[in-house]
Amino acid sequence: MDPVRRVVVIGYPAAELVDIACVTSALVMANWLHGSAVYDVTVATPGGRPIECGSGLTLQAQATLERLNGPLDTVLVSGGIGHVDAAADHRLVAHVRRLAQESRRVASVCTGAGVLAAAGLLDGRRAATHWFQADDLAATYPAVCFDSEPIYVRDGNVVTSAGVTSALDLTLAFIEEDVDADLARGVARHMVTYLQRPGNQAQMSMFTSAPTASGDVVQRVVDKITADPGADLTTASLADEAGVSEHHLTRLFLHDVGVTPGRFVRRARTESAAHLLVTTGLTMDRIAGRCGFGSAESLRQAFVSRYGVSPSHFRRTQAMRPDGPSDVDALAVEVTG
């Protein structure tokens, strides 16, 4: 029988409760589905004191950070609005550094990466964190390469994740790595979430984070692109509809969105394809056609470039139902979508 893996989740005043609960709930669910203890999960805080989380709710600790000793399988630091004070707490940081040396794997969620950075555990490494805090953390810890894009980043035995619910993606990845993919899928289904987003999937989708445009022209074009990614969306056609030159439209996009119209269209089409892959049973050819790709191979190339995995792999690991939607479901989506 494999030994039980000791996992310590470190919280502190004004930590984010969701950061902690995503990890602890998924690991406890893994134990239940496995039928025996795979993980021994402990929440530790400075002094073992209860902490008032950023949400205002109080969380009881199970262990005193200062009294914990290894060996540990994983030590994970939560993020939260209290991360700056936590990173400035030299005693807390020292104990994080000590436990990291006694752990097989070190991890953080969200701005917990700032605490790892303060402990010197991220020097020379690439690290994920919440997109909103990435620039501030990068300025504070110049020895760390903070990346605001991925869901999570693995650099050696250190794994850092993006904001809040990405803690669940990170934990599902751990379960698959530690046990197997079937257990990770079972946990995901019971928690009613995607089976697992690829670690390098972008944190922010353009469909939920529309760019802030300085004028109506870019906003109208963005709305057109996201409303129908399969339409004729060449820069020439978009510029003609917007009543401006191609050069001027490109200049406006670079200023407001940070990419050219062509790159924005490609990203919109790829994200639209990702949605269809996990919510319908449409074939690759039909998805490629609906999303404006000339062929399934063009879709595959764009998908690998964007997400680092093939569309078929994405569908296999992200499917919302174990058996996938039926052909009738797919037809209904195509007719009514």
Rank of each mutant, 00 (worst) to 15 (best):
I51S: 04
P50Q: 06
T270I: 11
V328G: 01
R321P: 13
A239E: 08
V333Q: 12
A242L: 08
T58S: 14
A296H: 10
A268T: 07
R306G: 05
M320N: 14
L254K: 09
E334C: 10
Q203A: 13
S103I: 02
Q60D: 15
D256G: 07
N31T: 02
R91E: 15
T129V: 02
I151Q: 09
T235M: 08
A127M: 02
H130N: 10
D85P: 07
R269I: 12
V257T: 04
A94V: 08
R251L: 09
V158Q: 02
D178S: 10
I10C: 09
L238P: 01
D85N: 12
G294W: 03
L331Q: 13
S310R: 10
V23K: 06
T234C: 03
A127Q: 02
D169H: 10
A227V: 06
A119Q: 09
V179S: 07
S166F: 09
R251E: 13
A127K: 00
T270D: 08
G79L: 05
T317L: 06
V265L: 00
V7P: 01
V217E: 04
D178G: 06
A88L: 10
T58H: 12
Q133M: 13
V158T: 10
H255E: 12
V41S: 00
V259P: 00
L277P: 04
V259Q: 01
T317K: 05
M1T: 12
F264V: 02
L33A: 05
D329K: 06
R315K: 13
A128G: 04
Y194A: 11
R300H: 15
T260M: 00
A296R: 12
T250E: 13
P198R: 02
L99P: 02
I51N: 06
T45S: 09
Q62I: 04
L57R: 09
G70P: 13
A330S: 10
S237E: 01
I151C: 07
A239N: 08
L277W: 03
S78E: 04
H275Q: 14
G80Q: 03
G35T: 11
D85E: 14
D256W: 12
V179C: 12
I81Y: 15
M204A: 15
S298T: 14
D89P: 00
M1H: 09
T270H: 09
A202T: 10
V309D: 05
A167L: 01
D327M: 06
H313D: 13
D228N: 15
C22R: 03
V244E: 01
T58E: 15
A236R: 14
R97S: 13
H130C: 04
R251N: 11
I10M: 04
L238C: 01
Y12E: 01
A14Q: 15
R220T: 11
G215W: 08
N31A: 03
V304K: 11
P311V: 01
D135C: 03
G156W: 05
L168P: 03
T317H: 11
A288C: 01
S25G: 11
D285K: 15
S272M: 12
Q318D: 00
T111R: 08
F132A: 14
N200C: 09
A134N: 00
Q203I: 10
G163Y: 06
A100K: 01
D136H: 15
V41R: 00
R300C: 13
Q196E: 09
A113F: 02
A242E: 08
T160R: 08
P211K: 06
G156R: 07
A100R: 03
